[in-house]
Deep mutational scan, measured.
Amino acid sequence: GEDLPLPPGWSVDWTMRGRKYYIDHNTNTTHWSHPLESGPSSG
Rank of each mutant, 00 (worst) to 15 (best):
G1P: 09
G1I: 10
G1F: 10
G1K: 11
G1T: 11
G1C: 15
G1M: 10
G1R: 09
E2G: 09
E2H: 09
E2L: 09
E2Y: 10
E2D: 11
E2V: 10
E2N: 10
E2P: 09
E2A: 10
D3Y: 08
D3W: 08
D3M: 08
D3Q: 10
D3E: 13
D3I: 10
D3L: 08
D3C: 14
D3P: 08
L4N: 12
L4E: 15
L4G: 14
P5G: 09
P5Y: 09
P5T: 09
P5K: 07
P5M: 08
P5E: 15
P5W: 14
L6W: 01
L6M: 05
L6S: 00
L6V: 06
L6N: 01
L6I: 06
L6P: 15
L6K: 11
L6G: 00
P7H: 00
P7D: 00
P7Q: 00
P7W: 01
P7N: 00
P7R: 00
P7T: 00
P7Y: 00
P8S: 07
P8T: 05
P8H: 06
G9Y: 02
G9C: 14
G9A: 00
G9W: 05
G9F: 04
G9P: 01
G9K: 03
G9N: 07
G9I: 00
W10Y: 01
W10L: 01
W10S: 00
S11M: 05
S11Q: 06
S11C: 15
S11E: 12
V12P: 07
V12Y: 12
V12H: 06
V12C: 14
V12E: 09
V12G: 05
V12F: 14
D13T: 07
D13Q: 14
D13K: 14
D13F: 11
D13W: 12
D13Y: 14
D13N: 14
W14I: 14
W14G: 07
W14E: 11
W14F: 15
W14Y: 15
W14A: 08
W14H: 13
T15Y: 05
T15V: 04
T15R: 01
T15W: 05
T15G: 05
M16C: 15
M16Q: 15
M16K: 15
M16L: 11
M16S: 15
M16E: 15
M16D: 15
M16F: 13
R17Q: 15
R17T: 15
R17F: 14
R17V: 12
R17S: 15
R17D: 15
R17G: 15
R17L: 15
G18D: 04
G18N: 04
G18L: 04
G18W: 05
G18A: 03
R19K: 14
R19I: 15
R19H: 15
R19F: 13
R19Q: 13
R19L: 11
K20V: 09
K20M: 09
K20L: 08
K20Y: 03
K20W: 05
K20D: 03
K20N: 01
K20T: 05
Y21S: 01
Y21N: 00
Y21M: 07
Y21L: 06
Y21T: 02
Y21K: 05
Y21I: 10
Y21G: 03
Y22R: 00
Y22W: 08
Y22E: 01
Y22I: 00
Y22L: 01
Y22Q: 00
I23K: 04
I23R: 08
I23S: 03
I23M: 05
D24N: 10
D24L: 02
D24V: 03
H25N: 09
H25D: 04
H25A: 08
N26P: 01
N26L: 07
N26V: 08
N26R: 06
N26A: 08
N26C: 04
T27P: 01
T27F: 04
T27M: 04
T27N: 07
N28C: 15
N28Y: 05
N28S: 07
N28I: 02
N28D: 07
T29Q: 07
T29A: 02
T29L: 04
T29P: 00
T30G: 03
T30D: 03
T30L: 13
T30Q: 07
T30P: 04
T30F: 14
T30Y: 14
H31N: 03
H31T: 06
H31L: 03
H31E: 01
H31M: 04
H31V: 03
H31Q: 07
H31G: 01
H31R: 08
W32R: 03
W32V: 04
W32H: 03
S33T: 14
S33P: 02
S33K: 14
S33E: 12
S33M: 11
S33R: 14
H34R: 05
H34S: 05
H34F: 06
H34K: 02
H34P: 06
H34M: 05
P35D: 04
P35L: 01
P35K: 03
L36E: 06
L36N: 08
L36G: 08
L36A: 08
L36P: 05
L36H: 06
L36M: 12
L36I: 06
E37R: 10
E37I: 12
E37Y: 11
E37L: 14
E37W: 13
E37F: 11
S38V: 13
S38Y: 11
S38H: 09
S38T: 12
G39D: 09
G39P: 14
G39S: 10
G39Q: 12
G39H: 10
G39F: 13
G39N: 12
P40D: 13
P40K: 12
P40H: 11
P40C: 15
P40W: 11
P40T: 11
P40Y: 12
S41L: 13
S41F: 06
S41R: 11
S41E: 10
S41I: 10
S41Y: 05
S41Q: 14
S41M: 09
S41G: 12
S41D: 09
S42A: 12
S42G: 13
S42H: 12
S42K: 14
S42Q: 12
S42P: 11
S42W: 12
S42L: 12
G43M: 12
G43P: 11
G43A: 11
G43D: 10
